[in-house]
Design a protein around this nucleic acid. Structure first.
Length: 275
DNA sequence: AGCCAGGGTCTGC
DNA sequence: GCAGACCATGGC
């Protein structure tokens, strides 16, 4: 990865990275395309990015900030070439892997990830994005550049489920409040979860109302980068039946979560179930 | 109108 | 442990 300062922007040359696939594969909900650029809110900041071939430009971001913050956020310090090579040992996995090449598992904050995937339950991606947008606008800090930060759990811990009415998030309102209270008091935290094995961390997350196995696994994979976690939603279940009736191939075990994301993207967008 | 969406809870066996 | 009703909302 080579990093270059280009009149106030940072231009990065990196292989195995697709901005579009990474931002559109269903792991994050706060980035939108705006012409050539992607604009989104992350880590308390509004950022704009664009990509041409292997060059990704972080607009208005200096190399120091890129290296300190955004390289890690987009998981650009991980060697996906090596991961992909391991996954390609299985022929079916190879297809999904080649199709999804460029997807990276972003390192998003745990609270934002958990909360987003609580909202995701029995819901579709466009509506999830809408609810999260209203959620941030209603309870988040305004930011330079016109966006709103993701609300802090402490802010929501003082609220009641009925305060979330304008979000139109349905039955999920009380789940968000319960999660906020458990995070605000430290009952659940990245530190506690980090000290536990996968099953223990899963169980602790599932003490939150509205958090079952799938949402817990999303929090572990996308919010704590536990790549052994394998979130199984309706798409993954369908895809597994069709593609891997005998279960996930052994070669995928250490990177089950990364394989999961390739399979999810493949199942949803390749026409596997629509043609 | 009915079905589906990155599910989970609660009840009853 | 497991099936089935139920849960809000909105797009198709």
């Amino acid at each position: 990865m080579t990093i270059e300062l280009l009149n106030g922007d940072t231009a990065v040359q990196v292989s195995d990275f697709s901005l579009e696939k990474t931002l559109e594969c269903g792991q994050c909900f706060r980035f939108c395309r705006d012409g050539e650029r992607w604009r989104g809110t992350a880590l308390g900041r509004v950022i704009e990015l664009s990509q041409r071939a292997d060059t990704v430009v972080f607009h208005g971001i200096l190399p120091g900030e890129f290296s300190a913050v955004w390289a890690d956020y987009f998981d650009l310090n991980t060697d996906y070439g090596a991961v992909n090579e391991a996954l390609c040992a299985d022929p079916t996995l190879r297809r999904a892997c080649e199709y999804g090449r460029g997807i990276r598992i972003m390192r998003q904050p745990l609270w934002e990830t958990l909360c987003s995937f609580i909202i995701s339950q029995n819901n579709n991606i466009p509506r999830i994005r809408g609810i999260i947008e209203r959620f941030c606008r209603a309870f988040g800090q305004p930011l330079e550049g016109g966006g709103y930060d993701f609300p802090r759990p402490e802010r929501l811990a003082e609220c009641d489920a009925c305060d979330l009415g304008e979000l139109r998030c349905g039955f999920r309102d009380r789940y968000i409040i319960d999660a906020a209270r458990k995070f605000a008091c430290g009952g659940v935290s990245a530190e506690k979860l980090g000290a536990l094995d996968l099953d223990g961390a899963r169980k602790l997350l599932m003490t939150i109302k509205g958090v079952g196995p799938k949402v817990a696994d999303c929090a572990l994979l996308f919010g704590l980068h536990r790549t052994e976690a394998f979130p199984a939603d309706v798409w993954i279940k369908r895809a597994m039946e069709r593609l891997f009736p005998g279960g996930l191939p052994e070669c995928a075990r250490p990177y089950a979560g990364i394989a999961q994301q390739y399979i999810f993207h493949y199942a949803r967008t390749s026409g596997l179930f629509s043609e």
